[in-house]
């Protein structure tokens, strides 16, 4: 579903990604961990071209997406993204946040989009706030709306960029719960996170990144129990 070949990304003189090769199959839940500055978020943001790769190739469903001839907006419609800072549209209500993209891009009828929106908001447990503005929600509620907003475009893949890192501790659980149920439904997910419990429980594979490379990867139980690389060991010993 996603194939990445020798992906490099530099910001000026800073070489952030130094050659990533990766295959992500349909239905996989890939969790990316690693120290800050290791390039996890940059890698994720390259997948939907919020960052333009400096070199290398990214294929989605067999289509090379990082070339000039590709319609980037169409590619992004296949991939939902959830941000650390939620990024809900501040001037729109919860329901408008969820229905804007389907009505504007997919030309879904407003009534149909709202019906679908109600289902999605019910699914993330926040239907009672459909007329609230983002400023009136807690962090956990905002992030659940953000997930519903991304799902409204019926993506094939969901990208999560540290979705719980900006939340108060008591709100982390409600967001992880939604993500876990999404995983159970078979969604292909790529998740950058520091939540090792989630990685262990939900991840089908864990990638450990450091200094712009995937240093080691394995099934979560195996990686957490028997890390092979010294840097993985040292990282895990600091956070577990």
């Amino acid at each position: 579903m996603i194939t990445v070949k020798d992906l490099h990304k530099s910001f000026g003189a800073l070489h952030v990604l130094r050659g990533i090769n990766e295959n992500i199959a349909n239905g996989e839940k890939v969790v990316i961990i690693g120290p800050s500055g290791s390039g996890k978020s940059t890698f994720l943001r390259c997948l939907n071209l919020l960052e333009t790769p400096t070199s290398g190739e990214i294929y989605i469903d067999g289509e090379l997406i990082n070339t000039g001839s590709v319609n980037v907006s169409r590619v992004r419609q296949k991939m939902g993204m959830v941000f650390q800072q939620f990024n809900l549209f501040a001037h729109l209500t919860v329901m408008e946040n969820v229905t804007l993209a389907p009505t504007m891009i997919k030309k879904t009828e407003k009534a149909a989009a709202m019906e679908e929106g109600k289902k999605l908001l019910a699914r993330v447990g926040i239907l009672d706030k459909e007329n609230a503005y983002p400023a009136q929600l807690s962090g956990g509620q905002k992030q659940r709306v953000a997930i519903a907003r991304a799902l409204a475009m019926q993506p094939e893949i969901m990208l999560f960029d540290e979705p719980t890192s900006a939340l108060d501790p008591e709100m982390v659980g409600e967001v992880l719960e939604v993500m876990t149920s999404l995983a159970a439904d078979g969604m292909t997910m790529v998740v950058v996170t520091h939540e090792m419990g989630f990685a262990r429980e939900v991840g089908s594979r864990v990638l450990f990144m450091d200094e712009g490379l995937v240093i080691e990867q394995n099934a979560p139980d195996e990686l957490f129990k028997n890390p092979a690389h010294p840097r993985t060991k040292s990282f895990l010993s600091k956070i577990l």
Binding site: R76, M79, G80, M104, I105, A150
Partner: peptide, 17 residues
């Protein structure tokens, strides 16, 4: 905030939209 633009783009909107 530029995050608002990124959120729009990530949903598949064009820059103009």
């Amino acid at each position: 905030d530029y995050g608002q633009t990124e959120a729009g783009l990530s949903l598949g909107m064009t820059r103009a939209q």
